[in-house]
Design a protein around this nucleic acid. Structure first.
Lengths: 396, 396
DNA sequence: CATCATTATTTCGCGCTTCGAAAAAAATAA
DNA sequence: TTATTTTTTTCGAAGCGCGAAATAATGATG
């Protein structure tokens, strides 16, 4: 609770502030924080300039950046990124590589990931840190134990046990997570009221994904993490989707679907492999310029998203939605049809009051979410277990 | 934990068995159970006939039926039922009344409910029990604090704060819950493996409802309890639903929808108010006899249910589904189309392995769920708080 | 029928965690 | 300086759960 209070409050909370946050007593906080400082997990901040009031000044506590480090790896369509993050959440180093994920053989794809992790681990930016955890985010589904990538649209190869592979190679615990879940985790760490208890992050990109936070916790399905909102059925036997099925939301609202409709192609045309961001921006520009197939395409996307969100809302109730990714830059084109559709659904009863927000860059969010996921794991599963475990680590 | 262990294990567990269930030590269980016996919450069972092994025989512990009592009230289309249940879960008395809920004015409906509760409370079956809780189940949605019935298809009147009304009238805490959620709770108390962690109960009746258990806990939306699965959109701008919207699942799979399609009526025909069970049974009989509009109607119902379940599964992942109510008796007619539809969805990837079960009587399940809901509340919020609260009650 | 073996339950003291109250520390205000 | 204010630490005490040992209640055995 103490570590979590310090990490949450982006500031440097004093012991007294921590008692207020946690509800524990002064004595308890005093004892625990002195232990944590002795173990090298927390340290006293030297920021003095708090507007000097009367009385003994508060001493801010901060996470000791050197207590540990984590590695984040993000694998998405044609892009692999890794970053080293210290215990306080600062980026120590990062690296990005473009790959042709769709055509890369299974083994080569795995090798690219392993090699990048090795380079990051060997890098001297990590010389003074113990890396205690690797968080691996993929577009697609992971199993609910966060060990295996089950399925992804970015490569035809499925069921890759990235956690086992990386753990065997480097001896560091690994979690495999869905990219949109990590977006949601990152938003939650923004700490604003909007992202406290219930909200939804929707990725509008080549594909459509979703991360859901309910009751302040990431909502995970029964078998896999990373529900496939993009593949809810919008129209039975409808447009052809990248996944091989028909009528999915993505087949109306993914980049390739908008592109396909904007070019007047049949809805069963094979989905394009990848569409550059600037091409999507130019489509949106044309749609804004006046009526035409481009504008209609965005309207169809909005309608599909609206009906599906509404259907989802009829089961989980409405929640604020944040659209993330290149598609979010065209939200002005999507919103009217989306609101019209959602108003026709049971979940849309209060459709006027549903608030939407946009966030154009998904990569940064995903990395941030991975980092926080891995760091909070260390907080709770390693450092919180008390001196025995912490000491054992200290020794090693 | 001890009370819960005794309630869960339908048997009379011995102290030693409770240590195994809870994972606590012998000493702790011994101390706690002697306290609970002293407080009149548990008692030692007198069942001796356990196949006599060597060693000191186990003494079974059971819930003391006289420790408390609860009242369950179930309000559904044209039917109001109440029952008094003792602390061990036995039915002490029950009462059922037929009402014309659709035409009854708001105040009269409320009066019917209050009067029935009064009659049950005054009944001499409760002479020796303290009623500590009333659980009120309605078809429709309740707010997530379980205090108000927000909306229901059984009467045009919404936003009835049944919890406040009954608490004011009788001074006993009240919870208002969705009927399908209570079905799910009841199934969970069956204790079988099938209903442990993740499963779904679907009510196939005049309307369509759903109760979801995920990770062993009832899944509740952000604002209301009782998600409206029946009003997920199956076909945008499709068949007319009882709720006034178009294309809901219910407008294809509810009793009135099957009846409407079986009679070859237009899908925008106004939904019938209520269809007797024997009429539905005869429809199913005709459908089994041979091809025709009746069989097609059930097929359409299956298809609508399949696509919607599949869409839901693409977000929460597949789980075993139990169909409850009169519609479940015709599941043989529904299943083929349902499986075909679900296989076309992302959630249906492993559609062959999804297991379905049926349970024809919903009323019994709903009452059972209410009772367990109310009783576990007493266990956790009153009796578990230790002697102070329990003593105060003992005195009163 | 006394004794042994076996299993269930209780008793007893210990360690851990948290708490409240009081003390100590560190600053400003007078 | 001294008083005041606020933060932090110290010091028993209470509550909870545990392990080990003691006690209880039975069937098996000679």
């Amino acid at each position: 609770m103490v570590i979590s209070a310090v990490r949450r409050s982006g500031q440097e909370p004093s012991r007294t502030e921590i008692t207020a946050i946690t509800g524990l007593s002064h004595s308890t906080i005093s004892a625990i924080s002195s232990d944590l400082i002795a173990e090298g997990i927390l340290r006293e901040g030297r920021s003095e300039p708090t507007a000097s009031k009367r009385g003994r000044p508060q001493v801010g506590l901060q996470l000791d950046p050197g207590a540990a480090a984590v590695l984040t790896v993000v694998l998405s369509l044609n892009l692999l990124t890794a970053a080293a993050i210290d215990y306080a959440g600062n980026i120590l180093a990062e690296e990005t590589r473009r790959l042709d994920t769709l055509s890369l053989p299974r083994e080569a794809l795995i090798r690219e990931c392993v090699d990048m992790v090795r380079r990051r681990l060997d890098d001297r930016s990590l010389a003074e840190h113990r890396v205690l955890r690797i968080a691996f985010a993929v577009q697609g589904t992971a199993d609910s134990q966060a060990r295996t990538m089950l399925w992804t649209p970015i490569t035809p190869h499925g069921d890759i046990p990235f956690a086992d592979i990386l753990e065997k190679a480097f001896g560091i615990p690994v979690i495999v997570e869905n990219d949109c879940n990590m977006m949601a985790v990152a938003l939650r760490w923004r700490g604003t009221d909007r992202y406290r208890d219930d909200f939804i992050a929707v990725l509008l990109s080549h594909g459509i994904g979703m991360g859901i936070v309910l009751n302040g916790e990431l909502f995970i399905g029964t078998q896999s993490s990373g529900g496939e909102f993009g593949h809810m059925i919008h129209k039975p036997k409808g447009a052809r989707c990248r996944c091989g099925r028909h009528g999915c939301v993505e087949a109306y609202a993914g980049n390739y679907a908008i592109w396909r409709n904007a070019h007047g192609l049949d809805e069963n045309t094979e989905p394009a492999a990848d569409i550059p961001d600037d091409e999507m921006l130019s489509l949106a520009g044309k749609a804004r310029a006046g009526a035409g197939p481009e504008r209609d395409a965005y309207e169809q996307a909005g309608s599909a998203l609206g009906y599906s969100l509404g259907s989802l809302f009829s089961v989980i109730d409405p929640a604020p939605v944040t659209f993330v990714g290149i598609g979010a830059t065209a939200f002005d084109l999507i919103e009217p049809a989306l609101r019209r559709a959602i108003a026709e659904t049971a979940g849309g009863q209060y459709s006027d009051s549903i608030v939407f927000a946009t966030e154009p860059k998904e990569q940064i969010l995903i990395r941030e979410g991975c980092a926080m996921r891995a760091l909070t794991f260390i907080d709770q599963e390693i450092f919180a277990l008390g001196s025995p475990a912490a000491l054992a680590l200290q020794e090693s």
